[in-house]
Design a protein around this nucleic acid. Structure first.
Length: 490
RNA sequence: CGGGGCGUAGCGCAGUUUGGCAGCGCACUUGGUUUGGGACCAAGGGGUCGCCGGUUCAAAUCCGGCCGCCCCGACCA
């Protein structure tokens, strides 16, 4: 039996929804159960594809809204580029095509006609966008180009998991052109920080930033930066990436401009993206054995009001909750669940499974006492509060929940981030406890490869501005150059 | 691509060994009673047993072929 990291003690109450496999039994099955039972997605009749259902898509819309706002604030504009890419364009950048060709989907026919020039469905849009940029950029006055697109991409994956790796997924890809290398580097790092901050603030996920190794970097990039998060089973997940593309694409796609000094130069480019994978991260960082826990800032409904209806008091309870719902609208995002065909207990379980941060219960007894029952989804805490205090109390409580969720995730990550210089100990930790392991590395791909063979762990990122604490490489014991995080990753 | 498992109602499964009326739980529909942690009673609806072929009086069940899905590995922004 494989041991897994970081499970909570089983809840004493044992009131869990039966359909969800406990995390301690089988984390993968737990994840699948949650995404299905919370109606986040459904499997498509094609392997590796899925429908994102309204409650999953609502999360994506919130993520988009928050990311998009930050992109605009940093000077970017949205645009849209074609779904199909002529194969010859994709082929131009050698490393790029080599990286993606195993997973591209092809279009070889249009109607009844066999296409003379086959098309590929975009696995990412560098090629087609660079083709446009070569015409749009002429002068230093055209720079910088700061464009983002929200779209779908297709990568023919061999093994897939809902939200984490599907053959089609939704994402955004920023594509920028700059006059100088410094400016491109600054952009790549700026957007990396936008990702980190947004993921931390909105998704309540603490993320580590760093640089990818040669082995892990984007096909065709000069350097790849990454935002890495730790899931509650101790595995790492790449939550976003930002690339300094250098002039690789500019040279093959001929994106040139006449600079102030009258010299014809190639632009320096970046690209950066986050995808619907973030939804998977959200589930795996915050979820528990009852299902999802959505941070208040991203929740479609921040609180759900469940009336307790009895035959005698039905009418006055219904009137009262309606009044409360009206009163709270505009203050917080609230949902009144006044369906009479479901029992309160059923609703409690259902809304918990779907992760609504707060539940407000109101029954006859509460009406008599002028109070409501509040239940926090994240902690399970239950309290009785005077009804008139709700409008002032709720926004603060939601902020508190958001903070507590981030704090809890951060504590988990810290407790599961270890460091050391003993390779045997490292192997044991990757096998038993997992989590992040910080260590010194010589920079040699062979050591990276050996770790993978021995432990299935990979270098998630090279930390910025860190001098190796240990002088020697964790693996080969030669002089170390970098400090890296190892983890088994999704 | 390699190893293992599975395919029967919307979902989860039994039935296959030993061929003989297509079953159970949940969900769904209608009516009634209920409602403070997945309520109860009654009456209903729902099937190309993955597909194609073979054996047989008779196939979910036996035989052959094919397809698909899941898990583990390999590969993988």
């Amino acid at each position: 039996m494989e041991q897994k990291a970081g499970y909570e003690k089983p809840d004493q109450e044992k009131e869990f929804v039966k359909e969800i496999t406990p995390r301690s039994v089988d984390f993968s099955q737990w994840y699948i159960d949650v995404v299905l039972k919370a109606k986040m997605m459904d499997y498509a009749p094609i392997k590796g594809f899925m429908a994102i259902r309204p409650s999953g898509y609502a999360l994506w819309e919130k993520i988009q809204e928050q990311m998009d706002r930050r992109f605009k604030e940093t000077g970017h504009q949205n645009a849209y580029f074609p779904l199909f890419i002529p194969h010859e364009l994709l082929e131009k950048e050698a490393e790029h095509v080599e990286g993606f060709s195993p997973e591209v989907a092809w279009v070889t026919k249009g109607g009844d006609e066999i296409l003379s020039e086959p098309l590929v469905v975009r696995p990412t849009s560098e090629a087609i966008i660079c083709d446009f940029y070569s015409r749009w950029v002429q002068s230093w006055r055209d720079l910088p180009v700061l464009i983002n697109q929200w779209c779908n991409v297709v990568r023919w994956e061999k093994s897939t998991r809902p939200f984490l790796r599907t053959s089609e997924f939704l994402w955004q890809e920023g594509h920028t052109c700059h006059r100088t290398e410094e400016e491109a580097e600054e952009e790549a790092l700026k957007m990396l920080e936008v990702y980190r901050e947004c993921i931390e603030t909105e998704l309540a996920i603490p993320a580590v930033v760093g640089r990818k190794t040669e082995r892990e970097k984007f096909a065709g990039a000069l350097r790849t930066y990454t935002v890495e998060a730790l899931m509650s089973d101790g595995r790492g997940l790449q939550a976003g990436t930002s690339h300094n593309l250098g002039q690789h694409f500019a040279k093959v796609f001929d994106i040139t401009f006449l600079d102030k000094d009258d010299q014809l130069k190639h632009v320096w480019q970046t690209s950066w993206g986050v995808s619907t994978r973030l939804i998977g991260a959200l589930i795996m960082v915050h979820g528990d054995d009852r299902g999802l826990i959505i941070p208040p800032r991203l929740a479609t409904f921040q609180a759900v009001i469940v009336p307790i209806l009895t035959k005698k008091d039905r009418k006055r309870v219904l009137e009262s909750v309606q009044e409360l719902a009206d009163q709270l609208q505009g203050n917080i995002r609230v949902k009144l669940d006044d369906r009479e065909e479901y029992s309160p207990g059923w609703k409690f379980n259902d809304w918990e499974m779907r992760g609504v941060p707060l539940r407000i219960e109101i029954g006859p007894k509460d009406l008599d006492r002028g109070q409501v029952v509040l239940v926090r989804r994240d902690s399970g805490e239950k309290f009785f509060v005077p009804r008139e205090e709700l409008p002032t109390l709720l926004p603060g409580l939601l902020d508190q929940i958001q903070d507590d969720m981030l704090k809890k995730a951060l504590e988990f990550r810290e407790a599961n981030t270890r460091s050391g210089s003993d390779y045997a100990e490292f192997k044991q930790i990757m096998e038993e406890k997992r989590g992040f392991y910080m260590a010194s590395w010589c920079g040699d791909a062979a050591c990276e490869e050996k770790v993978k063979d021995d432990t299935k762990a990979t270098i998630r990122c090279i930390l910025f501005d860190q001098q190796p604490a240990d002088e020697n490489c964790l693996v080969c014991d030669k002089k170390a150059k970098e400090v890296v995080y190892f983890a088994r990753a999704y």
